[in-house]
Design a protein around this nucleic acid. Structure first.
Length: 341
DNA sequence: ATTACTATCGCCCTTCTAGC
DNA sequence: GCTAGAAGGGCGATAGTAAT
């Protein structure tokens, strides 16, 4: 480690209940660069470029006092953090771990709806997201038309090609800024990051952000209805129904289910004895969950289902696998899970 | 004869577009 | 608004070729 590296430790209060491990590792984003999930240490890491231009490494884990806080170790070169930098780090940690989101109504649904056995832990129900909506969008575009290993490779190459390195560590690179992606141009995205047809979409997205035609901050307005947001997202080139639904989830709107082939395959197996199902049938299954449908589907899919994207993200970690010794309680109601609710 | 490498093909999954 | 078909890049399986 570079001798110039200084580290600071922040403690960020968490809502209650809060399950850090579930929040940090449940969603596949934790396995995409520049995120890194350390299973053994229960530590989520990310190389992060601060607005000041400094590239820092963030190491997040459950707080020293338990689940009531998140501990963040910030490693950086160039002296102590400024107040602005510290405030920014606290802000992005809150966004990534959704510390300001309140899933208590989802828990109530979980307790009241009969016949479901979601593998939800107390304080779970939060799915990791990026420090910014732009990064969430890039990740999402990289999930379209490919399997999970393809997504991981594309993101890895994008970060390796255009991400800014931590001083002295060429292999620690932050997520590329919209400016870097816009400046790279579609040809480099295609040839070096090998994003294929997504190159043009991604470049256009970055350019629209940089040149102010697309105000992503406006999309984070909690006053927007899901329908308004969906329409706005669909106006972005490359964002179809699946990607828009995923982005809605990332923005904290769980009303729409991103129905991909894997969701259909899962619902077909679990509720229709393997018969082919359409999107309408998938929607009907999760209708009782109201504005929590997406989370209901997410936590209905078993982590060990070998054919799903969920598994591919999760089988790298035994987390989420219900076990008697884990000491965690599933959000389980009576009845067998094979019953159609 | 066996192993290792390379090339090809069909399929996968989602978005876009044209037509109804 | 809905549907069908095309597009698109990568993956895995298979076939073909070269090396040991």
């Amino acid at each position: 480690m570079d001798a110039r590296v200084v580290s600071a430790r922040l403690e960020e209060p968490a809502p209650q209940p809060f399950d850090f491990v579930s929040t940090a590792s449940e969603h596949g984003w934790a396995y995409l660069k520049p995120f890194e999930w350390d299973e053994a240490a229960s530590e989520l890491r990310r190389i992060h470029r601060l607005a000041s231009g400094r590239v820092a490494r963030l190491r997040m884990r459950e707080g020293s006092m338990g689940s009531s806080s998140v501990s963040v170790v910030v490693e950086a070169v160039g002296g102590a953090l400024t107040a602005e930098e510290e405030a920014e780090i606290r802000r992005v940690v809150r966004r990534m771990l959704r510390l300001d989101e309140d899933p208590s109504e989802f828990y109530q649904y979980c307790a009241q709806l009969d016949g479901w056995s979601l593998r939800l832990t107390p304080g779970g129900g939060r799915l990791l997201r990026c420090p910014s909506l732009f990064e969430d969008m890039v990740y999402t575009l990289c999930t379209t038309n490919v399997n999970w290993s393809g997504t991981k490779r594309m993101v890895e190459r994008l970060v390796a090609t255009l991400g800014e390195p931590f001083p002295g560590r060429d292999d620690w690179r932050a997520f590329p800024t919209p400016q870097a992606i816009a400046a790279a141009g579609p040809d480099r995205l295609r040839q070096e990051a090998r994003l294929g047809y997504r190159s043009a979409y991604l470049w256009q997205l970055a350019l629209d952000v940089v040149e102010g035609r697309l105000d992503l901050g406006a999309l984070e307005d909690p006053g927007l209805s899901t329908e308004e947001l969906y329409r706005a997202l669909r106006r972005i080139k490359g964002v179809g129904d699946y990607a828009a639904s995923t982005l809605l989830m990332l923005l904290g709107h769980y009303d729409f289910i991103g129905i991909d082939s894997e969701a259909k395959a899962f619902v077909s197996r679990k509720y229709f004895q393997g018969q082919p199902v359409g999107e309408a049938q998938v929607r009907a299954i999760y209708e009782p969950w109201g504005r929590w449908r997406y989370l209901a589907l997410w936590f209905d899919v078993p982590p060990h289902d070998p054919t799903t994207k969920h598994d591919i993200t999760l089988h790298t970690t035994p987390r989420g696998v219900p076990s008697a010794s884990s000491g965690r309680q599933d959000c389980t109601t009576k009845g067998e899970s094979d019953d159609t609710p």
